[in-house]
Amino acid sequence: MAQSPTAAASLPKSRLRLSAYGERVAAYTILAAVFAWLVVNFLDNPQQFLSAAVFGISNGALYALIALGYSLVYGIIELINFAHGDLFMLGTLFSGFIITVVFGSKAMSAMGWVAFLVALVLVILFCASINMSIEFLAYRRLRHAPKLAPLITAVGMSFVLQFVGLKWNGSTQKSQPSVLPQGYIDLGGVRIYTSFLIVLAVTIPILGLMTWIVTKTRMGKAMRATAQDQDAARLMGVNVNRIISFTFGIGGALAGVAGLMYEQTVGTTRYDLGLQLGLIAFTAAVLGGIGSLPGAVLGGVLIGLIQGLNEGVRYGAGQRWTQSVVFSILILFMVFKPTGLMGVSMREKV
C-alpha cells in the first residue's frame, strides 16, 4: 500500500534531469574555453594563426573525403569500416606508384599533369574495387550476424590491408615527389600554399558530385531507402546487395581521391598511415554526425582546423599531442552529443 508517501518525495527522481543540466553546463564550459583559446592565439600572432588555420583547412578537406567514406558505409549498414583508413593508405601508395614509377614524373610539367589525371582515374578505380571486394568477400556474409562480428572483421581487414602496405612500401616512411606546383601566395603575411588551392579545386567538385548522386539520382534514392529499411527497400524492388556494393564503391573512390591528394601534397606515407588518419577521419565523421554527408564534410574541416591550430600556434599543445587532442574531442562528442553536429538521433524500438 502507499505506506511511505514521504519517502517518495525524497527519491532521486530528478537525477536524470540534473545530470542533463550538468552536461549542458560542461559542454558550454568546454566551448567557452575553446573559444577563449582561439581568441588568445589569434591576438598573439594573427598571421601565424591564419596560416595555421589555412593549413588545417587544407588537411581538413582530405579528412572530409575520408570521413565521407566512413559516414556513407555507416549510414547504410551501421558498420564502422575500420579498413577504410587503410584503403586510403593504399590509395597513397598506388598514386605514388602511378605517378612516380609508371609515368616517372618527379616535378611539375605537362607530363606531370597528365600523370596526375590518369592517376586520379586509376586510383578511384583501384580503391573502389578493393572496397567492393572486401564488402563482397567479408561483410556481406555477416550482414545478419551479431554486430560484434562485422566490427571485428573490419578490424581484421584493416590489418590485412596494412600488411599489403607493409610489403609494398616497407616499414619506414617513404616520400614521393609532387607534380603539383609548389610555393605559396602571401596575403599580408598569411601563407596560402598552392597545393591547398588544388586540394580545394579537386575536393569541392567531388563533394558536389557526391551530393548530386545521393540526392538526385535513382541510385542515390535507392541508397537512402536501403539505409532506412533494407527489407522495405527490397520489397520495393531495390537490389540491396548492389546498392550496398555501390556505396562501398563510392566510399572507396573517395578514399582513393584522398590518397592521391595526400600523396601529392604531404608526400610521405607509411603502412600505418591509414590507422592514424583513418581514426582522425572517423572522429570527423562522428563530430559532424555520422550518417550525415554535410556533417562529415563539416567535421573533417573542423578537425583539420583544430589539428592545424594545435600544431601551428604558440599556445598549442604541439604535434606530439595531436592524437590525444583529436581523441579527446572524439570522446567528448560521443559522450555529450553522440549525434554529432548535424546528425539525427535514433531511438531503439521496443
Binding site: 572483421t153 581487414m157 590485412v160
Partner: peptide
C-alpha cells in the same frame, strides 16, 4: 588480420 576475418 586474417585470423580475425576467417574466424568471424
Amino acid at each position: 588480420g586474417g585470423t580475425l576475418v576467417i574466424m568471424m
